[in-house]
Design a protein around this nucleic acid. Structure first.
Length: 313
DNA sequence: AATACATGCAACCGCGGAGTG
DNA sequence: GCACTCCGCGGTTGCATGTAT
């Protein structure tokens, strides 16, 4: 098995990233931005290939990453979007702020595995070892059909297993109106989507009848992608009680690029799962070049509050 | 407590598209 | 139009951890 062209160098390291490597990558991108990924390893002093750096950044180190369980809202959105665009994880991810394609893909695969297993009931015959672990996903191209079929043959599954009770893809209408109908049990609305609460699926929360009925999207051409961006306003932008400061921040956001935008987003979301950036945003400079060049001491503080896996540096 | 099995997720691989000379 | 590089994406793998026996 050959390595990718960018990984042909002898001393390219593979496998799990060490906290030290993470630190180097964070430090580099924080200071200089990623620029050309293929140059990142050299500039950052990493013995990795550019692709690996990119992947690590996008899937794990990026400041706006949301971690933890998918909420019921996210589940529904994923299923709807998947029904429409299939395995275009990046496309789906673009509508789930803070979630990565990889995460969604993993989630879907494990979710679908559960669905596959369910009909045949947990029997001892199923407990066959590792081969069983990777059921062939040989279901037809339109996987939502498979799902619907599956759900139909399954006895009223619990909501967390079947968050979608209607075939109508949610993306076909403004998610704002969808989310408008959603009431998180504690009474808060959409803004709570960005709070890192482990959300139990609550059947009461998802009364699909409240949702506007729309024609079902039929993907005649597999290459066709529905105009998601036009019909779906990014959720974080819809946060209902956005105060003036946040509006200002959004305005600023429009003037910045890449990393800066992320930071501002984190600011607007107050992502509690990311003390790193929370700290950075509130204590560090926010505008212009300064934000890209934090002092080393602030970086140390930042790194010290990084997710547990990165601790122990 | 030990072992086997199941699950979740980080990371790798290879392909294809876009950009460039 | 061709060759090349780079990047992004989707599929897949392997490992760490959790759970059941």
């Amino acid at each position: 098995m050959g390595h990718h062209s960018c990984c042909n160098q002898q001393k390219v390291k593979r496998g799990l990233w060490s906290p030290e490597e993470d630190e180097k990558l964070i430090r580099h991108i924080t200071n200089h931005g990623h620029g050309c990924w293929s140059e990142v390893p050299d500039k950052a002093g990493l013995q990795r290939c550019g692709k690996s750096c990119r992947l690590r950044w996008i899937n794990y180190l990026r400041p706006d990453i949301r971690r933890g369980r998918f909420t019921a809202e996210e589940e529904k959105l994923i299923i709807s979007l998947h029904g429409a665009v299939g395995n275009r994880w990046a496309h789906i991810a673009s509508h789930l702020p803070g979630r990565t394609d990889n995460e969604i893909k993993n989630y879907w695969n494990s979710w679908i595995k559960k669905k596959i297993r369910k009909p045949t009931a947990p029997s001892t015959a199923n407990r066959s070892g590792r081969a069983e672990r990777r059921p062939e996903f040989g279901y037809p191209g339109n996987q939502v059909d498979f799902l619907n079929q599956n759900l139909a043959t399954t006895k009223q599954p619990p909501l967390q297993d079947a968050p979608l009770s209607t075939p109508s893809p949610l993306f076909m209408f403004d998610t704002g109106s969808i989310l408008e109908g959603i009431r998180i049990p504690d009474g808060n609305e959409r803004a709570d989507l960005f709070h890192h609460q482990p959300m139990e699926s609550n059947p009461e929360t998802w009364n699909m009848n409240q949702l506007q009925e729309v024609p079902v999207f039929t993907p005649l051409d597999s290459n066709y992608l529905p105009p998601l961006m036009e019909s779906m306003v990014p959720m974080q932008v819809q946060a209902s009680n956005m105060n003036e400061e946040r509006e200002k921040m959004e305005l600023e956001c429009l003037k910045r690029q890449d990393l800066n935008e992320w930071i501002v987003e984190v600011e607007s979301q107050h992502c509690p799962s990311f003390p790193f950036w929370d700290h950075f945003v509130h204590q560090g400079p926010l505008v212009g070049e300064a934000v890209l060049a934090p002092t080393s001491s602030s970086l140390e503080t930042i790194l010290s509050s990084y997710p547990s896996s990165l601790k122990g540096i």
